[in-house]
C-alpha cells in the first residue's frame, strides 16, 4: 500500500470514528463519564469532521494523478470542498427528502458523503485502470462497425423524448401553460416520429455487419421503412378498435410504434453489444 493510499484510508477511518464518537456523546446521558470526557474533545473533533476529511476524500477522487499525499493546494481545496459539499448535501436532503437538520442526521449525511467519495476514489484508483485496459482490448478486438448505426442511442432516446412531448400535448388541456408551445411543436415532432426513428433502428439492426452502403439509398430505405411501420401500426390499431371496443386515436398508434422501437433497440443491444461482450469475456480472453 502506497503512503498516499494509507493517508487517504486514515482520513476516511478517522472521519468514521469522529462521527461515532460524536453520535455516542449525543445519545448518552449528560452525567455519564463518557459524555464528560467527550465534551471537551467534541469541539476539535466536530470542527475537524466538517472542515477536512470529506473535502480531502473528494479532492483525492478528483485528482488521483497527484503524486504527493497532500500539497498546499490540496489542503486549501479540501477545506473549501468540505464546507461546500456538506452544506449543499444538508440543504438538498432537507429540501427534497425532508431530512431534519439534527446532529444525528447531519452525521449520517457526512458519513454517506465520506463513504461515497472513498468508494469513488478506490474505484478510480484500483478498478478504473483494469476496466480501461479491458475496454481497450475489447474495442480493439471488435470488427469495424457499420457507421450508420453509431447514432442509434441518440436517435432512440430522442424518440422517447418526442413521444413524451406528443403525449404531453394530448394530456395538457386547451388554455393551460405550455399548451401553445406544444401545439406549435406537435407537427414537426409528429413528422420526425413518422419519418425517421423506426426505419433508422431497423436499418441499424439489419445492416450492422455491412461495412459500406450508399447513404442516400439508406436514407430512402429508412424513410420508407418508417412510413411503412407507421401505416402498419395505423391499420393494426384501426382493426383492433373494432375487435376490442376502444376509441381510435393517433396517440395509440404512436404508442404501438414506440413499443416496436423499444423492442428493436433491445434486440440491437443484445445482438451488437451483449453477445460480443459475453463472447469476449468467456472465450477470447482465455485464448
Amino acid at each position: 500500500m502506497k503512503l498516499k493510499d494509507k493517508v487517504i484510508a486514515l482520513a476516511f477511518i478517522s472521519a468514521i470514528i469522529a462521527s461515532i464518537v460524536l453520535v455516542t456523546a449525543e445519545v448518552t446521558e449528560p452525567s455519564q463519564s463518557f459524555d464528560q470526557l467527550t465534551a471537551f474533545w467534541r469541539i476539535p473533533l466536530g470542527l475537524y469532521l466538517i472542515l477536512f476529511p470529506t473535502g480531502f476524500l473528494f479532492y483525492s477522487f478528483l485528482f488521483p494523478y497527484k503524486k504527493t499525499v497532500i500539497d498546499i493546494e490540496g489542503f486549501g481545496l479540501s477545506i473549501a470542498l468540505s464546507i461546500s459539499t456538506i452544506s449543499l448535501s444538508i440543504l438538498i436532503a432537507n429540501m427534497l427528502l425532508r431530512f431534519p437538520i439534527t446532529l444525528e442526521h447531519n452525521l449520517i449525511i457526512i458519513t454517506a458523503l465520506n463513504v461515497i467519495f472513498y468508494a469513488l476514489f478506490i474505484f478510480r484508483e484500483k478498478i478504473v485502470p483494469h476496466l480501461t485496459s479491458f475496454w481497450v482490448n475489447y474495442c480493439s478486438s471488435l470488427k469495424p462497425r457499420f457507421s450508420w448505426s453509431k447514432f442509434i442511442d441518440i436517435v432512440f432516446f430522442s424518440n422517447i423524448i418526442v413521444f413524451l412531448l406528443l403525449l404531453a400535448d394530448v394530456i395538457v388541456k386547451y388554455g393551460e401553460e405550455f399548451d401553445q408551445i406544444l401545439s406549435f411543436l406537435s407537427i414537426p415532432l409528429l413528422a420526425f416520429f413518422i419519418l425517421f426513428p423506426t426505419g433508422y433502428l431497423i436499418v441499424s439492426l439489419l445492416f450492422s455487419r455491412k461495412k459500406e452502403l450508399y447513404s442516400t439509398k439508406l436514407l430512402l430505405l429508412t424513410i420508407s421503412l418508417s412510413v411503412a411501420s407507421f401505416f402498419i401500426s395505423l391499420v393494426l390499431v384501426f382493426i383492433s378498435s373494432f375487435l376490442i371496443p376502444f376509441q381510435f386515436s393517433l396517440i395509440i398508434v404512436l404508442a404501438l410504434l414506440m413499443l416496436f422501437n423499444i423492442l428493436i433497440y433491445i434486440l440491437f443491444l443484445f445482438v451488437e453489444r451483449i453477445i460480443p461482450l459475453i463472447y469476449f469475456v468467456f472465450f477470447r480472453r482465455e485464448k
Binding site: 460524536l22 456523546a25 449525543e26 465534551a39 467534541r42 469541539i43 473533533l45 466536530g46 470542527l47 469532521l49 466538517i50 464546507i83 456538506i86 452544506s87 449543499l88 444538508i90 440543504l91 437538520i101 439534527t102 446532529l103 447531519n106 452525521l107
Partner: peptide, 19 residues
C-alpha cells in the same frame, strides 16, 4: 443566504458549544 445558516447550524450541532 440559506447555506450560510446551514453551515452555522452544523457547527453549532457538531461542537455543541451550547453546553
Amino acid at each position: 443566504e440559506q447555506n450560510y445558516h446551514i453551515f452555522m447550524a452544523t457547527i453549532m450541532n457538531v461542537t455543541d458549544w451550547d453546553v
